[in-house]
Design a binder for these strands. Structure first.
Lengths: 164, 164
DNA sequence: CATATTACTTGTATTTCGCAAGTAAGAAAT
DNA sequence: ATTTCTTACTTGCGAAATACAAGTAATATG
């Protein structure tokens, strides 16, 4: 099992300490799954299409929990199931995630979604508000589904407006 | 030397493809050094206080160049020296970097700078404009110096206003 | 010309990762 | 009630990436 050695690298810079908490190849993908796809269980993360192995997934979930970015709660409907949920601190990563999404969509032409996502640049606030609303209400409808599916931003906007 | 195997993980998601390009422990720190500290040479990156080893640094610089995020130009003043410079694509990471900085400053109380950086939240556009200005003019004055030094945002704002 | 500096490369030990398989606890099916 | 399935992991091992130390080639400096 990978220990939490991590070869201390505290430079004191906020960017550096941010990256110490989620700056590996998997953490941000897990956070994306929770934030924009509404995933909550181990199995969903495993099947998210990125191909993370179960030992690494388990380790990252533990690390992110220790960092206070997510928390666990056993599902009341099913005793085996654990629900993972972002904390406030984790949700504060929404702007980072959105900018990553926008950058990726702008510089990769990997699919029709990218055009749509690029348009997100013009409604950042709206999207962030909607993301937060879903988190608060434990609404796990994906904002952006797995892939190739359609964005449901139209629905999102409707809901957000109604809420305000 | 580490080959560019990277175990292909193309999920098609823009976040995922973004992370494939700079989602390791070092790349974003190098980009930070270029973007906000004005570093341009191998040696400066090496001495940035994070403790990156030279083989990894060389590899990351090569990878980031291959990804079109930065470019190299031999310094005309000194034949040994290589200057690394962000491309447009690399500069487009400025919003990501800024959000990372804001998040880190908000959730780590690692120094007096954090208070100041947290205030950046209120002038995102201004900072992004100033960062871009410096890039365009090849002005390598650090926006945020190494650490413990003072922010020079006041100066930055002055210049930005004058420029407009 | 001797020494220093810069940008690397090379070699090796250590760490982390990916993959396959296994396990424990709870749920569902017969 | 007992077998089977599902979920969330853990274990072991080979492969890959990383850190650390040292070395090198091309300039530059004294």
């Amino acid at each position: 099992m990978p220990e939490k050695s991590k070869t201390k690298r505290r430079s004191g810079c906020p960017v550096s300490s941010s990256l110490e908490q989620f700056g590996d190849r998997w953490s941000l993908l897990i956070i994306r799954d929770m934030m924009v796809r509404g995933y909550r269980t181990f199995k969903e993360f495993q099947e998210s299409g990125e191909g993370i192995s179960s030992n690494i997934l388990a380790d990252r979930l533990k690390t992110l929990e220790a960092a206070g970015i997510l928390m666990t709660e056993p599902a009341e409907t099913d005793g085996r199931r654990m629900n993972y949920r972002l904390t406030e601190k984790g949700m504060d990563l929404a702007p980072v995630m959105l900018e990553l999404l926008i950058w990726g969509a702008k510089h990769e032409t990997s699919g029709p979604q990218c055009v749509l996502i690029a348009q997100m640049e013009n409604c950042r606030q709206e999207i962030l508000l909607e993301t937060r609303r879903r988190w608060l209400m434990r609404d796990s409808t994906p904002l952006i589904p797995k892939f190739d599916d359609t964005l449901n931003l139209q629905a999102a906007r409707g809901k957000a407006r109604r809420k305000q």
